[in-house]
Amino acid sequence: MTRNKRGKEYIDPQVQGALWRRMVLHWLAFILVALLLAVGLEWMSDPFQPVLEVITRAWWTYSPMLLVLGCLIPLFVYDSIRLSHRFAGPIFRLRQVIHSLASGSRPERVEFRDNDFWKEIAADMNQVIDRLGNTPANKEEPGA
Rank of each mutant, 00 (worst) to 15 (best):
T2F: 04
T2C: 07
R3K: 09
N4V: 11
K5W: 06
K5A: 10
R6C: 10
G7R: 06
G7W: 08
K8D: 14
I11F: 04
I11Q: 05
D12S: 10
D12W: 10
P13M: 00
Q14G: 10
V15E: 13
V15N: 09
G17A: 03
L19P: 02
R21D: 12
R22F: 14
L25F: 15
W27V: 00
L28Y: 07
L28N: 08
A29D: 06
A29K: 09
A29H: 05
F30W: 12
I31Q: 11
I31C: 09
V33Y: 02
L37W: 11
V39Q: 06
L41I: 15
E42D: 10
W43P: 00
M44C: 07
M44F: 12
D46P: 03
P47K: 02
P50G: 00
P50C: 01
V51L: 14
I55Y: 05
I55M: 08
T56Q: 06
R57W: 06
W59P: 00
W60N: 09
T61R: 11
L67C: 09
V68H: 04
L69D: 05
G70E: 03
P74W: 13
L75K: 06
Y78P: 01
I81M: 13
R82K: 14
R82S: 10
L83Q: 14
L83S: 10
S84F: 08
F87Y: 15
A88Y: 08
A88C: 13
A88P: 02
G89L: 01
P90E: 06
I91Y: 14
R93C: 01
R93T: 15
R93P: 00
L94K: 03
R95P: 03
V97S: 00
I98H: 08
S100M: 07
S100Q: 14
R106H: 14
P107S: 00
E111M: 05
F112S: 02
D114Q: 11
N115K: 12
N115V: 11
F117N: 08
W118D: 07
K119H: 15
I121R: 07
M125H: 01
N126T: 04
Q127W: 05
V128C: 00
V128R: 04
I129H: 02
D130C: 02
D130W: 09
R131Y: 11
L132A: 03
N134A: 12
T135D: 03
N138R: 12
K139L: 15
K139Y: 01
E141K: 03
P142F: 13
G143V: 03
G143N: 07
